[in-house]
Amino acid sequence: MIVELNGREVELEAGATVADAARAAGIDPERRGIAIAVEGEVVPRRQLAAVRLEPGQRVEVVEAIGGGAPDRSDGRPASGLGPERFELGGREWGSRLIVGTGGFRSHGDLERALVASGAEIVTVALRRVDPASEGTLLDVIERRDLFVLPNTAGCYTARDAVRTAHLGREAFGTDWVKLEVIGDDRTLLPDATELLAAGEELVEAGFTVLPYASDDPVLARRLEAIGCAAVMPLGSPIGSGAGIRNPYNIRIIVEAAGVPVILDAGIGTASDAALAMELGCDGVLLASAVSRAAEPERMAAAMRDAVAAGWAARHAGRIPTRLHARASSPEEGLAELT
């Protein structure tokens, strides 16, 4: 039987399954981070070994990462990017919005919100999700072909965070980590000294480190200096929805940074996300604002548009603010009334 595999014709035995086809392409179908589509429909992981192929069918095996923006199933292109490309960790991305997967009321809500957000990168708490088991939110992420950014949420010491990052590397096969070291569980504010220590160790070990940090310009500089791939200052405490409390600091961080700046934590509503982009951030990471909204899918779409709008406004050359009015209609050539 001949099928079309990633654009090439290959010979498979009659009755071959989707999993067999992946192996024929030299890809382990069990591996996380890949997705397989038959005639454009992604086949759920647990059915890969059950779904049989028909002669002539078109099979695509895709890595969930790299290779530009994946085609979203709703057909909407990632909008508002403009000519400026978004590079993070040595890769190019089609969306500047990163979404956290915690706090959703159901997997249905999670999946619809992720699609509506247009995000390509999603964060997953290593402490809360066991990558080895079926039936977790990783199934949703895989089905939607998203890039998993493991985070170290729930870690209070550098050692704990480093260990957790190493576990993540093994489990997810990725060197990327969103590094979180929390100071206390009432404010969930980052512990700057533990963060630096853990960051240094992980960069040394070859990780792509994205540190969740306070909105402190000096700390941001230090994090960049030790080799972090981005700096991710908070707008306000995690889950507070209090927006960006110190826009001046965010501007100072942006001005000095040679790596992408991603506003992480505190976003409550769409204008917060737009403001982050207007302040010059390269991206926004949010979770609760969407997951705990009454309508997560709708809020996710709003965030997607807000990030795009803020980015476009930042680059469209805004007018200066002035104290007095300046008429927008021309004053010359008006009829003179006497």
């Binding site: 809360r128 999700v129 066991d130 080895a132 088991s133 977790t136």
Partner: peptide
């Protein structure tokens, strides 16, 4: 009624654990 008091509950996405 019998004096038992139950505290609950965590919500964890950890498969069959």
């Amino acid at each position: 009624a019998g004096g038992e008091v139950v505290l609950g509950a965590t919500v964890e996405d950890r498969g069959f654990d």
